[in-house]
Amino acid sequence: MCTGLVVTLSACSAEDAPGGKAEPLKTVGAAEGALNLLSLPGYVEEGFEDRSVDWVKPFEERSGCQVNVRTVGTAQDVYERMSGGDFYDGALVPSEAFGRLVAADGLAPVNTRLLPSYKSLDARLRGLVKQGDETYGVPAAWGANLLLFETGQAQPASWGAVFDPGESKPHHKRIVWRDGPHAIASAALYLKHRKRSLKIRDPYALTTGQLDEVVSLLREQRPNVLSVWKDGIQSIEAFAAGDAVVGMGGLHELDVLARGGRPIAVAAPKEGVTGWYAAWGINPRVRHPNCMYQWLDWVSTPEVQKQVAEWRGVSPADSRACGLLRPGFCTAYHVGDRAYIDGLVFPRIPDEECEKDSECADWSDWTEAWSSLG
């Protein structure tokens, strides 16, 4: 039997919890003194790279929770560690892994009533981390996977300029892709309109047959691509040098290039645009639940949202941060732009029908398919 804490979500193992699932915390009690986090780069900063960029030490001082963080590079890393039994109290989970973690019981429900800042986060993002009546995460940031182009070129009207070997022929070897599953989703969005016989409904929920068709298109196009970028700086450098004239990018890349005077703009592809988000989630085997809930509320405050937005070059989940950010930031990043964010196609938690369908491509299928492209 698990004892010793006045909270419901505690340091019990999955075997201690009925059905292997933890219950949400009911009250926040005394801090346990430690907090073990898993994160992508730039979301848990304590002044190592820049002394002025530190939202960890202030949290430790006010909460009494000593933060220990392991930084990993990809969504796949987060997925494997959170679903593999590693004892992190929580993780910053990218959207492409979030839904699959929920489906695999790799995230615990969150009692948002214990988080005063939660209700101020963007409503669309809050909806994306819910399944039924349960909330499984706290949105931290978001962005869009944009079609960027050099204004001296003809403005593309379709994602075919990036993914279709025929349509992209005028700028072969001057195309850049974003690394990872988001490229698959954007290409699926293109094929949803270009090849309707595939019957793609959701570019983030593909059957194995649909995934094969998308990967076949990407494989055919891959030799025509200049580079596949993991870090936005690679995309910025390619466009700034004039090596790239069209490709995938984000609001950060566009903002940096525009402020640097580069003639780069955003196209409006007729197929639409996919989006991404990152959200903090709780490990069902959380060892320090009181510290974890204090962290969830801390990173949702406008002050921390502002720091993350500036440091990472992302859109904050809370528009209240706009009052603290530099003039023009929120306009450039579409913060609070209801029509813009509602128009994006985001990853979502897979529905039960997809999960029970043997033809529904799972996370391992996506990652294996992307890795096969080289």
Rank of each mutant, 00 (worst) to 15 (best):
R62C: 01
R124L: 11
L189C: 03
W142T: 12
A161C: 06
E96H: 09
L114S: 10
S235W: 08
W363K: 04
G250Y: 00
R287T: 13
A17P: 04
A34N: 13
V215P: 01
Y136S: 02
T207F: 06
R81I: 11
L251S: 13
V72Y: 03
Y204T: 02
D318Q: 04
E32K: 01
P302Y: 07
F59V: 02
K195M: 13
P41E: 10
S168Y: 01
T8P: 00
L125Q: 11
E359W: 07
E15L: 15
P170R: 10
D50G: 05
Q305G: 12
A361N: 03
C354P: 00
D357Y: 02
D50C: 04
T74K: 11
Y340I: 01
W276S: 09
S10I: 04
T331P: 00
C360R: 10
F163T: 00
L191R: 08
D255F: 12
R201V: 14
S197E: 15
W177A: 05
L324I: 08
K130D: 05
A267M: 01
Y190E: 05
V162Y: 08
A317M: 04
V28M: 13
K192I: 03
S168V: 02
F329N: 00
V102E: 11
K356L: 12
D86G: 02
K306T: 14
K21E: 15
G374M: 11
G160R: 10
R348V: 14
A97T: 10
V72Q: 04
G90K: 02
V304W: 01
P41I: 00
V69P: 04
S315W: 00
P116L: 10
V7I: 13
G85P: 03
A265M: 02
W229A: 14
E167M: 09
Y43L: 15
T112G: 08
A185W: 13
V345Q: 13
V69Q: 06
N283V: 03
G166W: 13
T367Q: 14
P284M: 03
W229F: 15
Y190M: 03
H334D: 07
W55E: 07
G343R: 01
K119G: 08
A369R: 01
G137R: 10
P316D: 05
W295P: 00
A258I: 06
D164L: 11
G19D: 11
V314Q: 08
N36G: 03
R70L: 15
A238R: 04
S95Q: 08
S83A: 15
V162R: 06
F329P: 00
G281K: 04
S39V: 04
F346C: 02
W370H: 04
N111V: 08
C2L: 15
R285H: 06
S186Y: 00
G64T: 10
D351W: 04
K119R: 15
G143H: 03
F346N: 03
P94V: 10
A244V: 09
